[in-house]
């Protein structure tokens, strides 16, 4: 009987050990699956909704969705040359709201050098102008545009 009792005890210990082991394994597995699906644990974070978040950016040359976050400039060849040479004195908005061809950008750079203390851009001038005409081209209106900005209203009799 003692032996039987001992045997039964051993079986119970092994049984409990298995349960603990599989429970642990199950938890780890769930965790791994969760990490695979949401590796940033975003479900546990609160949505950051303050309008001042940008100021806190540690990486000031962070790119999101193809946009240089700090300046709003499009990520493309020549971006950093533009950021470093064209956004020190004025906002990048001054750059992006203008649409010019190579010749007129060159004339604008000349004007800034003559009157606004812009330095010699050296070989960067060509890189910058190429970036601007490629990423901010003069809009093609063609010979007739679509009717746009329509405010639909019901016409009364």
């Amino acid at each position: 009987m003692d032996r039987n009792e001992e045997f039964r005890k051993s079986v119970t210990i092994i049984y409990k050990g298995f349960i603990v082991f599989f429970a642990f394994f199950g938890i780890v597995l769930c965790l791994l699956i969760y990490i695979a699906l949401d590796h940033t644990f975003s479900a546990f974070k609160q949505e950051d909704d303050t309008p001042y978040a940008d100021v806190m950016d540690i990486d000031e040359d962070r790119i999101e969705n193809g946009i240089h976050v700090r300046t709003g400039l499009v990520e493309a060849e020549g971006l950093m040359e533009v950021v470093h040479n064209c956004t020190n004195c004025h906002s990048a908005l001054l750059v992006t709201q203008n649409r010019m061809d190579k010749e007129r950008w060159a004339a604008t750079i000349d004007w800034m050098q003559e009157t606004q203390n812009l330095w010699d851009l050296g070989k960067n001038e060509e890189i910058i102008i190429n970036y601007l005409v490629t990423n901010y081209p003069v809009p093609k209106k063609g010979r007739r545009q679509n009717l746009e900005n329509l405010e639909w209203y019901e016409l009364e009799e």
């Binding site: 009717l147 329509l150 405010e151 639909w152 209203y153 019901e154 016409l155």
Partner: peptide
């Protein structure tokens, strides 16, 4: 007349 953007409701003359 009319101003651009007119919507005609169940009516086809203007």
């Amino acid at each position: 007349f009319p101003r651009t953007g007119a919507v005609l409701n169940k009516k086809k003359t203007l």
